[in-house]
């Protein structure tokens, strides 16, 4: 195993991310190769140098500001009620419309199915009325007016 083979595993070796067999191979190479040992030492120095960047801590206001920001996005109680009522009202109107349509459709269908009977019922109700009754007066007036209107 030469330096080029080792080079690609050196980073993972340093991070303890190599499988045991490969780790042993790298360790064995490092025992005999000054150049690779030197490279590893430089990388370790780089890693230590990175400690110069200190850790950050949240400010005391962090949690409060986050809570306020989340609260801002929440709808108020009236808005929540409105959001609930709008779809419910829309559904109720739609249901009412559907019901009216259903009833009207049913009547039309019945009329279309039995047109003669509907007409017969209508005419029969005025065909024979007792003399001098209200119906008789209505029919005589209607007969007297109709010819004039059609003229």
């Amino acid at each position: 195993m030469n330096c080029r083979d080792i080079e690609k595993w050196l980073s993972a070796f340093m991070d303890g991310e190599l499988a045991p067999a490969r780790k042993d191979a790298v360790a064995s190479h490092l025992g005999t190769c000054e150049a690779c040992r030197s490279r590893l030492a430089e990388w370790e120095a780089v890693w230590r140098a990175l400690d110069a960047l200190p850790a950050a801590a949240p400010s005391p206001a962090f949690r409060g500001r986050l809570a306020a920001r989340i609260h801002e996005t929440r709808p108020a109680a009236s808005e929540r009620l409105e959001r609930f009522l709008i779809p419910v009202s829309a559904a109720a109107v739609a249901l009412l419309g559907f019901w009216i349509g259903y009833i009207a459709g049913g009547r039309q269908a019945a009329a279309a199915q039995f047109p003669e009977s509907a007409e017969a019922v209508y005419l029969d109700s005025f065909s024979s009325v007792p003399t001098a009754s209200l119906g008789d007066v209505y029919l005589s007036l209607n007969n007297a007016i109709e010819p004039e209107e059609t003229r």
Binding site: E7, L10, S11, A12, D15, E17, W43, V46
Partner: peptide
Amino acid sequence: ESLLFRARETL
């Protein structure tokens, strides 16, 4: 693995 190798070399 490759990114960390290159980062170490650059640093």
